[in-house]
Each structure stands twice: as structure tokens, then as C-alpha cells.
């Protein structure tokens, strides 16, 4: 499995990562090596094996429907990059 620089750019876009242009080729090489190593997985016989998402055979615990979280807007927004009137600000979203 080998990844081209174009595929790297595509994946980087999906992950919203701006890559330094000079890194693209190095990433393509490194990710190709990693995917080659990962490719060993296809040799495993997994017919009739159920996928394991989780190490524990437990099920979801349920929370009581109660309001327990206080309003901490000030504390949360003290570390925000940009806020105004209690809103988080981002450059205009065009729809």
C-alpha cells in the first residue's frame, strides 16, 4: 500500500491540516511505510470473527436526567481565542 502526495493532500484536507509543502513527500513516504506494515492485517484469517470495539464486555450505563452542570461560561470563555457577548466568534460562515 503506497500513498501518493496527492492522497496525502486529500487526507490532510479531510483532517483539516495545512501541511508544509516540503513535508508532503516525506509524509507520503512515511505513511506508505506505515500502511505497508499495517497491510499484514490482511493475512489474518478473520472469517467468523466478530469485531472487537472495546476490551470490556459491558454495556452503556445510564445517567439520571438532571441538570447538574452550573453555568461556567466566564471560566470557559476566559481561554477562548475570540468571543463577544457570550458568543464564540469565527470568520463569517458562508452558506
Amino acid at each position: 500500500m503506497s500513498l501518493t502526495a496527492d492522497q496525502i493532500r486529500q487526507v490532510a484536507h479531510l483532517a483539516r491540516l495545512e501541511l508544509k509543502p516540503e513535508m508532503t513527500d516525506a509524509y507520503a513516504r512515511q505513511l506508505s511505510n506505515i500502511m505497508a506494515m499495517v497491510g499484514q492485517l490482511s493475512n489474518a484469517d478473520t472469517a467468523n470473527v466478530s469485531p472487537m470495539a472495546h476490551p470490556l464486555d459491558m454495556h452503556q450505563r445510564l445517567r439520571l436526567d438532571a441538570v447538574t452542570a452550573p453555568n461556567l461560561r466566564e471560566a470557559f470563555q476566559a481561554i477562548a481565542p475570540a468571543t463577544e457577548n457570550g458568543l464564540y466568534l469565527v470568520p463569517k460562515v458562508i452558506e
Binding site: E84, N85, L87, P91, K92, V93
Partner: peptide, 15 residues
């Protein structure tokens, strides 16, 4: 919610 009113060039986010 994204709020586009009341701001110029920016969008306000209310979560």
C-alpha cells in the same frame, strides 16, 4: 447555532 446577524464579517456561535 451559528448567528450571522449583528456582526460584520464574523459569525457568532451559541452552543
Amino acid at each position: 447555532k451559528s448567528l450571522h446577524e449583528n456582526f460584520v464579517g464574523v459569525t457568532g456561535i451559541d452552543l
